[in-house]
Amino acid sequence: MADGSNALIDVRNVSRHYVRNVDEVHALDDVSLEVPAACFVALMGPSGSGKSTLLNLISGIDRPSEGEVIVAGQPLSTLDEDELATWRARHVGLIFQFFNLIPVLSARENVALPLLLTDLDKAERRRRAETALRVVGLEERFDHFPRTLSGGEQQRVAIARAIVTDPDLIVADEPTGDLDARNAEAILDLLRALKNEFGKTIVMVTHDSRALRYVDEAHHLDKGVLLTGEEAERAAAALLAAAGAHPMPPARSDGSS
């Protein structure tokens, strides 16, 4: 890596404050985190703990108040608004809790959307969109519109859209939050397969303890602070207890894999 670290994602002493009316909300407070390439990471914590905020900083949708985010050697602070948009289009796949498909576009058109920002011609965009839809198991839904698809299918279309540009990094904000248990597990399975088979680095925000069985690492946030050591273990244990004791991978904060 350009800066000597072997992590794909390097979050350094990042804070994010929002000003709401006159109050300053500390959504994130001095968070540092490294995520190695080809690693599936969960960001966990109670509602309002800053998970989405951290994810948005990693994906370059938002900028930190302090600190630096470096992804694949690229310090995001050096990019202006348009450069950042272009960078996102090329390097990051986005997955949302509510799928965020465009209702007036078919599955294939939704998946091909990010390719409009490339130089590929129409036939190639179409071909790649279909390939991505096959990867997520939707080869029979090319022409379906979002409203005719189940929640699980819609999230698969969204995943196809996230991988169609072949990005290094996939970020997912509660991708199973709006799905039933069966569909949630299928999505988690799919994400894990993307990591295993295509070497994608995946950062997933979730407070679903089932996710712990699929990820390589889990990080815990509370009130904008990344928990470490004993606190992290206690948070993990609490989740495990709630989930009914599934084996859980250790949280790695050393950044090596």
Partner: peptide, 13 residues
């Protein structure tokens, strides 16, 4: 609004 946010997040200027 959310759709516009999505398009912008995907990289549309």
């Amino acid at each position: 609004t959310a759709e516009i946010g999505t398009l912008r997040a995907l990289g549309f200027p």
